[in-house]
Design a protein around this nucleic acid. Structure first.
Lengths: 227, 227
DNA sequence: CGCTGCGTTGAGCTTCTTCAACGATCGTGG
DNA sequence: CCACGATCGTTGAAGAAGCTCAACGCAGCG
């Protein structure tokens, strides 16, 4: 799998002319990370950003006591660290591979020059950053205004849509990781799962969740799901 | 105050050639809002975005029970609603004038055409969206990983820097609004203020806060403040 | 003067975290 | 092949943080 094919398939560079793609491939390089290896840390100067080629990474913040809040989990084709690069600041969070991962690394200086030469590169970036900004807005609202059952319900419904199922979902990460994404801890999440099961809303078998009462789930979620 | 001068002074359009600025002024229009007037609501289709000319607006989410989480408070020169416009989706939150406000409104369709014609417009936008994304990342971390005293301490320290003071700050909004920004309610914020005062960390006189023990405040905050 | 918005304080309660223990699964090296 | 450690998940008991509800004070202003 050579970088060029992968790069042009990523949404971030989709639709760009071959000339520009070549420039991008020319300034970047492939980096490899083992599971649990740190890619960058909060406070590091953002000297470049990555695009996941294979594997999976998470972006997270740590409290002083060591609790973890996951902001994002990214897979193939998704860029991360770009915001800090464009803003020219330090990374506001940590990045770690959750499994063996390859990334395409693009250094800041060269990329900023490319951007100036070819501002059309910015268009897809605008769209990506906008989407992430909005998903963060939702996350802030959920963290602040919903309780854990509501957040879990919302997550399950979104996952259902993603997986195109109407009565079951399969969690795409360990429950402990999900807890961190939902802004809680494994113990609490486990209790909520048990409670929702007791209430007959879902049935849990490991990572497989049967949705028994979608109505109740939507009620718990409190979110309107319009296109 | 005619729009043209204001528009070119905004960071969002800073450094653009006169030709482009004229185009932008041509497609936009001035809108006026009274205090407490809704500008747009969560779920509305994003048919355009605004730039604050005078006044002040807030972006916020509401829980089903009516509690409010403020995401942003914006003043003159700051754009809002752009993310939903670039992503072509609905607004993920509400916007309301907190006092009498004028905005420069830019409709989506025309602006997207302009962007395609002149991608250089996108550069400043990239920087703005990146900064907001990072500030949201911080907000998520704070909401999830810090308790209210920590968030308040962080806010006070940032405000000190903004105001260039070293031993006092003046709150730039009502305490009830601050509560919503910090992800809590007025009662709780009031209690925290009282407690920090009892502990000799600060002295509160209405909106004026004297910082008596910066050390303790930084300790509470838990954030490293690097450049 | 009385209304309205803002702020404060108290009492009770819910939610969630902490701490601790325990069970299950899985991959690996002996 | 089994034993071991590591990861993951579950459950219980206790405690902390923050929310709800309610009452009240105070200031500004029509």
């Amino acid at each position: 799998m050579d970088p060029e094919n992968l790069i042009e398939q990523c949404f971030i560079f989709h639709g760009l002319p071959a000339r520009v793609l070549n420039d991008i491939v020319a300034i970047g390089s492939v980096k490899k990370f083992n599971a649990k290896q740190t890619i960058f840390m909060e406070g590091d100067r953002a000297t470049g950003f990555h695009i996941v080629i294979t594997g999976r990474i998470k972006i997270f913040k740590l409290s002083t006591e060591g609790r973890e809040q996951t902001l994002h989990v990214f897979g193939p084709g998704e860029p991360f660290g770009e915001a800090a690069v464009f803003a020219g600041t330090r990374f506001p969070a940590n990045a770690m591979a959750v499994k063996k991962t390859e990334t395409f690394y693009i250094p800041r200086e060269a990329f900023v020059l490319l951007l100036k030469k070819d501002p059309s590169i910015a268009m897809n970036l605008l769209s990506i950053l906008s989407r992430r900004l909005m998903s963060f807005a939702v996350m802030i609202g959920d963290l602040s205004l919903k309780e854990v059952p509501g957040r879990l319900a919302t997550y399950l419904i979104i996952l259902m849509k993603q997986q195109g199922k109407s009565d079951s979902v399969t969690l795409d990460m360990p429950k402990s990781q999900l807890a961190s994404l939902l802004g809680t801890i494994p113990e609490t999440l486990s209790r909520i799962f048990a409670k929702m099961q007791r209430q007959g809303i879902i049935a849990v078998q490991g990572p497989h969740i049967k949705i028994l009462d979608l109505e109740a789930l939507e009620e718990l979620s409190g979110t309107e799901f319009r296109d």
